[in-house]
Design a protein around this nucleic acid. Structure first.
Lengths: 353, 353
DNA sequence: GAGCCAAATGTTTACGTAAACATCATGGCC
DNA sequence: GGCCATGATGTTTACGTAAACATTTGGCTC
């Protein structure tokens, strides 16, 4: 764990105590009591005479006292803080999950420290973990690890961890959306509409969810005895969706496209419109995620909705069970159901010419 | 500052020290040195004999030692952590700004603790501040305070604060996008295209940026001697954009719409499409923010791009200057330029029938 | 009013780190 | 070979809080 450089212990030196907030001792002096009594008031214990309590509260108010979290954390060995490692905070799935995690953590009295990882490369994620473990956290949520694997990622021993969909499933407690069922629903929906086959604009190769969606897409086509076209590769962005979409638009055989996520679908829609192909009359498009804007794209996008709120709260739940009870949950993983929402971007297959 | 309930000092009790990580003392014992020597190695000081350092590093490795952040923070009086209060993390402007803040903070060796505020009401924001000041932060970034004002928000004295666009401008150091210029550019662009006037779908009333945009929209129309229609009110979401858009779509006099943000614009586009009004042939639409999807809406959205990355880094810069140098910057505020990006959602005004 | 119990409050201590100060060795110099 | 400067290491202490233990106060019983 410790290496020549990157030793957990080695840190740059911080400046010493810049600002001096009032301490319990000062409050105690002002109120004419011992600091222990201040502590009792501060913790809301009831074995303090009301008159004394009032004097202490008044002193706190006068000095603007706030308890020193560092000292408390040192005392308790806990920060009541969770760490979150996310890859691209501004991406929809990401921010919705993080938002839900923050919310769920708050409900449990925890706050959340965020580290954004520049690239999803193992190196960057490792660096993020190292940085976070220098920080004050009781547990760690890894929202997207993409290509990182348990081997490439040196997690501090003893640090409770929970991951959302990634290669850590199996080695760490995980929460994942039901990717397989989602992709199946999407593809089957298109087949049921009479499309002969379904093209797929996939996510990046190193992403496990992306691969789950590819696999389920393929399996569903095969189960229906359909031709399986070569999947096209995107990177979750609308930009590549657009680029790939321009190619798809030129192929008259393409009547149904299942996109790895809604952003990609937006790009595909853009390309189709531009090429003059009508949606859904000529081509049907399905997305994945259920971003807020999906409903207001044109035409409104049929998509597979993930329950980000539930994913977030499950992540926190699973993590806190480890933090509090120190149980070993590795291997457990929870699957959150998804939901196909049919809108106007999908329709019956065009009649063959 | 202290009140009957909600006293900063009062907290529920945490369990005491659940997990015991190896301490310096244990490493010292194993390496046969004093804990101070371990500390020196840990801090990377150079006045340790190489042989000794190696022994200490070996001991650290063996025990899986990591420095206790709480103790360090207590010692230094700093966590190297900044707090961020955001309103709706998943909203685009929000998450982009937060992402940039996280990034900029990381570059300065700080991590970021996030508190998501449920509603932008003063009460909720206050609660968030209270929660955060229990946490271990050296400074606070308020990304959107909306209706909160310096009066309604009890900030801990001495806590360095920086705010993005809000009513705190003036009392606290602030960074704001050039709302006025942005709205002017948007409206003028539409007027230059020959539209007689421009309708506005505004943001919520209690948001200062929303009001700046309204004011600049009105001022630009008046400067051009145009009629100023009643502004319509949205809440930044595509949903209300759609609702309001349905009304606009029925009014043949509406040929140009300036939306308070891109999400709203997406909703308006949706409504216009649905009503069979062509964009931009019948109606031109402009957004605000420059979300990634703007380029891939249909038609690609003309919008006023904010430089979120720069806003984020300016926020951190301004905040750290206070944290480190303890200078008083209240009153200073930085304005970040915006940029009009013209796409296909705007075009010449239709010929009058 | 002595005795006793419980409530209220005070005192001591430990949490892990690192600055400040103290000590000890080593080596160069005359 | 003694002296001092220097570098390496050890010892003491403080940071703010809260548990554990100790003491005082007040009220009640008989």
């Amino acid at each position: 764990m410790v290496e020549t450089n990157g030793v957990p212990g080695v840190q740059t030196r911080g400046r010493a105590r810049p600002r001096t907030a009032p301490s319990m001792a000062e409050v105690a002096a002002l109120a004419g009591v011992s600091s222990q009594t201040v502590s009792r008031v501060s913790m809301g214990l009831d074995n303090v005479k009301p008159a004394t309590r009032d004097r202490v509260l008044a002193a706190m108010a006068e000095l603007g006292y706030a308890p020193n979290t560092a000292a408390r954390a040192l005392r308790y060995g806990s920060f009541r803080t969770l760490g979150v490692i996310a890859h691209q905070l501004a991406r929809t799935g990401e921010s919705r999950t993080v938002e839900a995690v923050v919310e769920a953590a708050r409900a449990e009295g925890y706050t959340v420290t965020i580290v954004d990882v520049e690239s999803p490369s193992p190196d960057d994620v490792s660096a993020a973990v190292t940085r976070l473990s220098h920080q004050a956290i009781d547990g760690l949520v890894i929202v997207r690890a993409e290509s990182a694997t348990p081997d490439t990622l040196a997690l501090p021993a003893q640090l409770p961890v929970v991951v959302s969909d990634s290669r850590f499933v199996g080695t760490h407690p995980a929460v994942r959306a039901d990717q397989t069922e989602g992709a199946r629903l999407a593809v089957q929906h298109l087949l049921d509409l009479g499309h002969r086959t379904v093209h797929h604009v996939a996510g990046p190769d190193d992403s496990l969810p992306a691969r789950s969606r590819i696999d389920a897409w393929r399996a569903t086509l095969e189960a229906g005895g359909r031709a399986v076209p070569e999947p096209l590769h995107g990177d979750w962005t609308a930009r590549t969706g657009y680029a790939v979409g321009r190619e798809l638009a030129t192929d008259p055989d393409v009547t149904a496209v299942f996109c790895a996520n809604d952003e990609t679908a937006a790009g595909v829609l853009h390309a189709l419109h531009e090429a003059g192909r009508r949606v859904p009359d000529d081509v049907s498009v399905v997305g994945f995620d259920g971003i807020t804007l999906a409903e207001h794209l044109w035409p409104p996008l049929t998509t597979v909705e993930q329950d980000f709120a539930r994913i977030g709260s499950s992540l926190v739940d699973l993590l806190l069970r480890q933090v509090r009870d120190e149980v070993d949950l590795s291997g457990t993983h929870e699957t959150v159901p998804v939901r196909l929402v049919v809108r106007e971007s999908t329709g019956p297959a065009p009649r063959r010419p």
